[in-house]
Design a protein around this nucleic acid. Structure first.
Lengths: 212, 212
DNA sequence: ACCTGAACACCGTTCAAGT
DNA sequence: ACCTGAACACCGTTCAAGT
């Protein structure tokens, strides 16, 4: 238990002093690995091998830490490129890629959302979406409106999807989904797959937007 | 500062012993008034004029408290009735009423969502939605699919709407919305109103569902 | 400029008691 | 059955210092 080694175990670059980038990096890893609730300044400082107050010096208080993390995550999510040929396919591909990339990082998306930065998180996708829609012949206002409609569909789908994951057996009330008597053996009660719903709705929406 | 009055100030019914209903009621008022982060077991006990451990005896730990609150809120939100005439109007009215009622209780919706009970919160709306769609002539599977599509649209719209409220001036990056040069004086950057987007998308979706 | 140590006010939770 | 008091381990945050 003697402090025989002066080098702290968690420090990334042992040479220079601590940087806010290092701190945010370790903080993000904590959120990804152990969840948002596991991110405490004290635990973060411990993992960095540093006193709590060092974190305060570099990134400020916990609110500032979360803001910095959100900005970092938004930056990392980066650009989205459409795939396929034809307006319908390309526009839908953007929405689908965005949805999958959000579903892959549930904890980070939750953090960004809690910080009220969801709009900023979607900004890159919105840009390519609008560009694609304008190429398809839509005017500026129509393109902006349609892009936002598609994005809100993605948001809804992602958030509902996570709900299903987190609460797998939510069958406390006996109301059935369709309003008529369910068979006794019918345990599943036609739980429509969220990806199917998303594809269906997206298809309908995009077709209508492109006037087909 | 003497304990001259034996009656605790926050107790609803001074007569009998404490009930979990009373506790949940006060807890809900705290969330509505001061926000979810202001809900602490210690503060709750203080407001009830009772020792912390009394809360534990009735409702269990904090997780159980939040579960109980979520169940209570879901129960309160209750039934939704369609208005107007014609399938298109009636189906859309359900979605619109649901959206408004969710937007009126942002803190409670956030709590339910954090507890992973969003699906249960939407169950009453889903039932009337499916009933209306079946009246309009849709089959069971189609009705379930369409209802879920409409609900995910509501979810997305509500969550984005709250984002805009909470983060009013989010203009740190200079990227414009449409992908071309923005005028210098153009501060607004065509921020499409979320209610407009919702109405537009809902209209498109419902029309497509009803096959018009 | 960068970091430590100690302290403060607050949490959730539990245990042993009381009536 | 219902409630209290005291204690524990954990938070975020700040202040006065150190180099």
């Amino acid at each position: 238990m003697r402090p025989e080694s002066r080098q702290a175990p968690g420090r990334a670059t042992p040479g220079g002093p601590l940087s806010s980038d290092q701190i945010l990096e370790v903080a993000q890893r904590i959120v990804e690995t152990e969840g948002l609730s596991a991110l405490t300044i004290r635990g973060l400082a411990a993992k960095l091998g540093v006193a709590v107050t060092a974190v305060y010096w570099h990134v400020g208080d916990k609110h500032a830490l979360l803001e910095g993390l959100a900005a970092r995550i938004i930056d990392e999510m980066g650009e989205i490129t459409a795939t396929g040929r034809g307006a319908q396919t390309r526009v839908a591909s953007i929405a689908r890629i965005l949805r999958v990339s959000l579903l892959e990082r549930p904890e980070l998306v939750a953090l960004v959302h809690r910080q009220g930065r969801t709009a900023a998180l979607f900004q890159p996708a919105r840009k390519v979406l609008v560009a694609e829609l304008r190429t398809a012949g839509l005017g500026d206002d129509q393109a902006a409106l349609a892009a936002q409609a598609i994005l809100s569909l993605v948001v809804g789908s992602v958030l509902i999807d996570r709900q299903v994951e987190r609460q797998p057996a939510q069958r406390d009330d006996t109301d059935d989904l369709l309003g008529h008597d369910a068979e006794v053996g019918d345990v599943a009660l036609t739980p429509v797959d969220e990806a199917t719903i998303f594809d269906y709705t997206l298809d309908v929406l995009v077709k209508s937007i492109l006037g087909q």
